Simulated scan of single mutants.
Amino acid sequence: MLFGATGFTGRLVAARLAQRLGTNSGLRWALAGRDGRRLIEVRDAIDPGGALPALEVDAHDPEALAALVRRTRTVITTVGPYQLHGSDLVAACAEAGTDYLDLCGEPEWMRRMIDAHDETAKRTGARILFSCGFDSLPFELGVLRLQNEAIRRFGAPFPRVKGRVMRLQGGLSGGTLASLNATMARAADNPEALAHLRDPFALVPGFKGPEQPRGNRVEYDADLDAWVAPFMMAAINTRNVHRSNALLGHLYGTDFVYDEMQIGGPGDAGQARAANLAALAASPNESLKPGEGPSAEEQAAGYFDVRFIGLGAEQQRLTVAVTGDRDPGYGATSRMIVETALCLLDSGHGLAGGCWTPGAALGATVERALSANAGMTCRTLGA
């Protein structure tokens, strides 16, 4: 079940599901959302024969949502901001034992959902997977591959890993901007929410690890001989990576330090570029409205290249590269969540219920699926 099929990202996910599954595959699927007329428009665009079910359900109707999720094994939801429109659906899935996947980049809301529904999901067997897109799959999987390779080669994980965005081309949508604005508005009015946003271990209740880099200013990175700038998505990605570590039994260690920055480059030119990247990250396009976003041509022209550099206590060093051949937030993200859902259906039968990160839940299985079907590669480069 794809919930929220009429939004900007929802339409992309619907189109990708149609490409991967069609309407005559052995796997039955459906569209759902609050606006029946717009659902029919989406359905007609991807299924002119009209065989695909399109179900009108409001995100704020708990009884209707409960009935909806009892009809399906898995729900993909693109209805954001999740903190405004997503809580009832998580509750319904957790109670019904129905698997749930989203594209959430709202860590404070995720923490509230973990606190409220993790135990219920463990009891019912519901697998709740947050952040199944560019937030934060490439980052989870890059760190996981790097640390597994460190353990294989050196006998221990790296205590320090740097995530560095080398190149990225892509745009924001109005929905993403609305999620960011909703997060900041809640933090302004709620001291507990603000504390969660500032805590790098906010998604690991009861655990406090070592001090983490703040990553909030342009600085020189001596390990890379380059100037680096703040990365807009670091606030969610770093917290998901720390949650993955905890869900994997602290595979990376309890002393693990991780940050994410954008590469400006060496010398004066690199410093100037880093300053420009920082300014762009601090001033997103406020004119975008929900339903608006990059064109199909812009999505196809997008890409990303992220490096994960592991630094060992005895001068060991290793790098993993994660790259993608589409706009990260939309062209790539729509494929990522579809492949994650299919992996959960096909390969997740032994996975216990609870609130998961997709990397910790599916690991190398979803990495292979993304390589085969989503244009993402994950490679170990060496030092």
Rank of each mutant, 00 (worst) to 15 (best):
P138Y: 02
S25L: 05
G10F: 06
E192I: 12
M166Q: 12
G33P: 07
P266V: 10
L248P: 05
F201S: 04
P159C: 06
G350V: 00
F207G: 06
A32E: 03
G170T: 06
A235R: 13
A5V: 03
T77V: 10
L21G: 02
P159Y: 00
N237T: 05
L280R: 15
V218L: 05
L248E: 01
G265L: 03
V241S: 02
L247Q: 15
T9V: 10
Q316N: 02
Y252L: 05
V143F: 01
V165A: 01
Y258I: 08
N190Q: 10
P294Q: 04
R20S: 13
V241C: 06
L177M: 11
T323K: 15
G265H: 07
L194I: 01
G133H: 02
N216I: 12
G170R: 00
G382M: 09
R34K: 04
F304C: 05
L247M: 10
R71F: 09
A18Y: 05
N237F: 04
L351R: 03
T72E: 10
A178G: 06
Y220A: 04
G26W: 14
I263H: 10
M261G: 10
V320C: 06
F207E: 10
W227Q: 07
S244H: 01
T365S: 08
A269I: 14
F130S: 00
A272K: 15
W356K: 08
R145F: 02
G209W: 03
I128S: 06
E367N: 04
E286R: 14
D99L: 03
T74G: 11
M110A: 14
A32F: 05
R335E: 12
Q19A: 14
L101N: 08
S287D: 12
T120A: 12
N148Y: 03
A269E: 14
R20Q: 14
E297K: 11
D35F: 04
A278D: 00
L168R: 08
A300C: 07
T333S: 15
A188Y: 07
F134T: 02
P290T: 00
G97A: 09
L65I: 11
A321Q: 15
P230T: 11
R153K: 15
A274K: 09
S295E: 06
P358F: 04
T254N: 07
G86N: 00
L17C: 01
R379N: 14
S287Q: 14
A5G: 10
E367H: 01
I236T: 09
E286A: 15
P205Y: 01
L137E: 08
A67L: 12
A374Q: 07
E63Q: 15
